[in-house]
Nucleic acid binder design. Structure first.
Length: 603
DNA sequence: TTAATTCCTG
DNA sequence: CAGGAATTAA
């Protein structure tokens, strides 16, 4: 599945706003100087620094408060300010030629896409308008809560700095113990007035950070009081935010009941046949509105039948990148709540929230892989290593279905084939434990690994259609250029193939052979060696007998034609081409794997 | 027109 | 193997 890169993009995108302040906090020398520098994720940095290092840097408190407020506002504000920068980044990250090509297509197609897209967003807007209001209200509630917390914290910090009696600390100890025991007295430290709010917002679900974990992660020189405050703040913030997010999602997911069964693109809906989902989709279905060629659809469902959801790239080959991305993202928001809430990263949730709030539509969510990789490469690993996101992804199994989570040696080796930027990206991910959907992410272009794979595929198909190629290169982002490049590859393969056949056929004739039936291509023959050298350099793959038979037949056809003196005719090879073109066979399913060459070589 | 193919060249 | 020209089929 590729929500991956949609998600990744959204990660970098959604958080770029708040990330401005956060990253600054996590990595700026000043904060490092105050707090002890430790490689902890920034979500923790922000919180623990907030209560920790700020105890020692009082002059920063005001600034940090402002930051937190900015963050919260950023969550409820329009992400629109992000859009322009993102778009420009997307464009800038592309090659000029590619860019112009995309632009051309975008100018050509809008008539077909926009009406559908517009109708689509109109519908969703209408359905979710009421929800949006509610969400905004909840967010405002959150903001207020946070302000209260900040004020409270500020007061307490002052108070504790002035008069920190032993009696006090003893009492805090007790309350902390009590909290550990019962998990009820979250506000035993004297913030009782927040108890009710806390209950309202946490509703049984506890933040993942356990007491021990957070203590071991933040073993600062804190008093119990401070620790307690830290814990409370952490739990409160994470709990409240996730609660709101979850409630939002619950409402959204339960709302458009009809969509759920229709928007099953790549998403297994229990009790619902996915293919019937395709066929019975109505005009309201996103799927139907995707401007895709039917052949692509077929290839898609065929591929999906074998490997689950396809990467986004396959859905983008009709050049309607943004529209398709958008629709796919929305599909995610329709997923089955119980399952997918667990599988949905916070990034996704925030992304969805942004959409629910009325932003991020009209195809502005489109991202090129290059943009994603570049944005990830430029952001700090820590900012990417969001523990909750990682945990949820690891437990989701979504990424695992299509993307190997760990690097085998061959996979690492294969990375050497990737473009430089991609390689850096991969390494970054490896280092930061955020591997899931990035290990085999969508390729913008074809790399030597793809060439290798294509050559092996030639053993099975000499005349692959573009739809077939799309099906067998799921990790490639198909566009006009890539498609024709692949087609050209096979054309070149054929060229070499036919040249060899003609050459050896003539050679046989010159050797005085009269019976074409003796012309074979045994594995010890020179012809085989030549072919194997060309298509299977390194002998990584066992040349199928089927191919050798076809080669023999080709050889005989050339032999017959030349013997009959047809080679004097203008296009005497054409009949031979026609014969051979009908001899394509099915390609083994393993070739559909995005990490195909490696898997083949391992076996 | 466009995509696919072949042929030719580097 | 890529690029370009020419041809062909849709």
């Amino acid at each position: 599945m590729d929500p991956n890169f949609v998600l990744l993009s959204s990660k970098s995108q959604t958080f770029s706003h708040m990330g401005e302040s956060m990253k600054e906090e996590g990595s700026s020398p000043s904060s490092r100087g105050c707090g002890r520098d430790s490689p902890i994720p920034w979500d923790q940095i922000t919180i623990s620094n907030f209560v920790d290092s700020d105890w020692f840097c009082d002059e920063h408190i005001q600034a940090k408060r402002a930051r937190v407020e900015t963050i919260i506002q950023g969550m409820s504000l329009s992400p629109n300010p992000l859009m322009p920068s993102n778009n420009s980044r997307e464009k800038d990250s592309r090659h000029p030629t590619e860019k112009s090509r995309e632009n051309k297509r975008k100018q050509k197609l809008p008539q077909q896409q926009n009406p559908q897209g517009g109708e689509w967003s109109g519908v969703s807007r209408g359905n979710w308008k009421g929800e949006s209001h509610h969400f905004k209200e909840q967010f405002q509630m959150l903001q207020q809560q946070l302000k209260h917390l900040q004020e409270r914290l500020f007061q307490l910090s002052e108070h504790s700095a002035l008069a920190q009696s032993q009696e006090d600390t003893e009492r805090k100890k007790d309350s902390l113990k009590h909290r550990n025991d019962s998990n009820h007295g979250h506000w035993a430290v004297g913030i009782d007035q927040y108890k009710d709010l806390k209950r309202n917002f946490t509703k049984g679900e506890k933040p993942k950070i356990s007491e021990e974990e957070s203590q071991s992660r933040a073993p600062w020189l804190m008093t119990y009081e401070e620790k307690t405050l830290s814990e409370i703040l952490k739990k409160e913030l994470t709990g409240a935010v996730s609660q709101v997010v979850d409630s939002v999602l619950r409402k959204v997911l339960s709302k458009p009941s009809g969509y759920q069964t229709q928007l099953v693109n790549g998403i297994q809906v229990p009790g619902q046949d996915r293919k019937s989902g395709y066929s019975t989709a109505t005009g309201n279905s996103r799927k139907d509105q995707l401007p895709m060629a039917s052949s692509q659809n077929m290839a898609q469902s065929q591929a999906e039948a074998h490997m689950g959801a396809l990467p986004l790239s396959m859905k983008k080959c009709s050049d309607s990148l943004g529209h398709l991305v958008n629709s796919r993202m929305t599909q995610k928001s329709y997923q089955d709540p119980p399952v997918n809430l667990a599988m949905t990263s916070h990034i996704q949730e925030k992304q969805i929230l942004s959409q629910l709030l009325g932003y991020g539509q009209n195809g502005h969510w489109s991202y090129s892989p290059s943009q994603i990789s570049s944005s990830q490469a430029t952001s700090s690993p820590q900012s990417l290593d969001l523990p909750w996101a990682t945990n949820k992804w690891q437990s989701s199994g979504m990424g695992q279905q299509r993307y190997p989570l760990s690097f085998t040696s061959s996979q690492v080796e294969s990375l050497a084939l990737l473009p430089t930027v991609k390689l850096e990206h991969e390494n970054l991910k490896t280092d930061t434990d955020v591997i899931p959907f990035s290990s085999v992410h969508i390729q913008e272009g074809l790399n030597p690994g793809h060439l290798k794979k294509a050559k092996l595929m030639f053993f099975f198909t000499r005349y692959p259609s573009s739809s077939l190629l799309k099906a067998y290169f799921p990790d490639v982002q198909f566009n006009r250029c890539i498609t024709s490049q692949l087609i050209k590859w096979f054309s070149n393969f054929r060229e070499f193939y036919y040249i060899q056949m003609e050459k050896f056929a003539r050679q046989a004739i010159s050797e005085g052979i009269t019976n074409p039936n003796v012309l074979k291509v045994p594995r010890n023959s020179e012809l085989f060696r030549t072919l194997n050298m060309h298509y299977n350099k390194g002998n990584d793959f066992e040349v199928p007998d089927q191919f050798l038979e076809i080669a023999s037949l080709t050889l005989q056809e050339f032999f017959n034609a030349v013997t009959a003196g047809k080679d004097s005719e203008p296009s005497w090879k054409k009949p031979i081409y026609k014969i051979i073109s009908k001899l394509d066979s099915d390609i083994p399913e393993i070739f559909k794997s995005s990490s195909c060459p490696q898997e083949l070589f391992q076996n």
